[in-house]
């Protein structure tokens, strides 16, 4: 039983980070109908900015984090404004290819600026200090990441569901033309959404880097897992993305523990296939219907 709980706790900790990644993906997809395959690289870039501000500029952690989040937001927003918006007539696939291009550019730039050797991101919480709940062990950083992750999710929920900006985001996501007719500044809302989603990704990166080490490829796996979590929860549902992330984290840990550690990574892809076949809208997504 203690072992089961230990697997579940590990899964929850990593699942909360998958959820953050998934939220960024879903937020963008809901609002601009773009599947951003550069989400992971934006997150990595933001995290590298934090690393530089911490180690070279000697900023305090909180200020450096704000700097990293802001950098990711600016790059994300600029990418929308300078590339995605002019290409608004392109197909969904075309936009995906554009985001893949951005991913390669960001990855190459990160390699050029920071090299490929893994780095340790100084973090105020300890990866070594642990808390014991009976036989279950959880590190200080896992607890901290989980709480920060939940807080960010809650903050995003409040922003989207209970603020005027959130209302505008939802309006744009449902009907751009109608939103424009109601004098909602659609372009600004989309820029803001791209910035916010990129910041969310960077937040996940900052929380992940102390436990996964920081290098230009650190988000490859978490991005795929975040994407799987978004599909699982529903691409248009933010609570779905959060629940999808947590469920995927726990499912992976239990699968590795009790079925096969060898195929742990494969589970995310199996889940994507199963969801697309059995419930394409995801656990909490709304079924897509079109009048013909």
């Amino acid at each position: 039983m203690a072992l089961l709980a230990q697997y579940a706790v590990g899964g929850l900790a990593v699942g909360s980070l998958y959820a953050l990644v998934a939220l960024g993906i879903v937020l963008l997809y809901r609002t601009s109908r773009v599947l951003n395959f550069a989400h992971g690289e934006l997150a990595t870039f933001g995290t590298f900015v934090v690393f530089t501000l911490l180690t070279s500029a000697r900023w305090p952690f909180a200020a450096a984090s704000v700097g990293g989040l802001a950098a990711a937001a600016v790059i994300g927003a600029a990418f929308f404004f300078l590339v995605i918006r002019p290409a608004k007539e392109s197909t969904l696939l075309g936009k995906i290819v554009i985001t893949l291009g951005l991913a390669l550019v960001l990855q190459g730039t990160a390699v050029l600026l920071w090299g490929t050797d893994p780095k340790t991101l100084p973090f105020p919480l300890s990866d070594v200090k642990v808390y014991r709940l009976g036989e279950v062990v959880v590190s200080q950083i896992s607890v901290g990441s989980f709480i920060i992750g939940l807080a960010l999710m809650a903050g995003l929920y409040v922003l989207v569901q209970h603020s005027r900006i959130g209302l505008a985001m939802r309006a744009v996501s449902q009907n751009t033309v109608a939103a424009q007719a109601l004098a909602i500044p659609v372009r600004q809302i989309l820029v803001l959404t791209w910035g916010l989603a990129s910041s969310l990704g960077a937040a996940a990166g900052i929380l992940l880097a102390p436990v996964t080490l920081l290098d230009p490829y650190m988000m490859l796996d978490p991005f795929l897992k975040g994407f799987a979590a978004a599909v699982l929860g529903g691409m248009d549902s933010m609570p779905g993305a959060a629940i999808g992330g947590l469920l995927l984290g726990i499912a992976e840990a239990l699968f590795a523990g009790y079925i096969s550690v060898k195929f742990k990574t494969t589970l995310a892809f199996l889940i994507i296939i199963a969801v697309l076949v059995l419930r394409p809208e995801g656990l909490l997504g709304k079924e897509y219907r079109r009048r013909v």
Binding site: L3, Q6, Y7, G10, G11, A13, V14, L208, V211, T212, L213, Y217, M218, L220, D221, P222, E252, A253, A256, G257, V261, K262, K264, T265
Partner: peptide, 20 residues
């Protein structure tokens, strides 16, 4: 014998397997 894939970064389950 506990394997992992090259891109994996979360080794909490692997560590538990080894401890077991």
């Amino acid at each position: 014998a506990v394997p992992h894939e090259l891109t994996e970064r979360d080794f909490s389950a692997h560590a538990l397997k080894l401890r077991e």
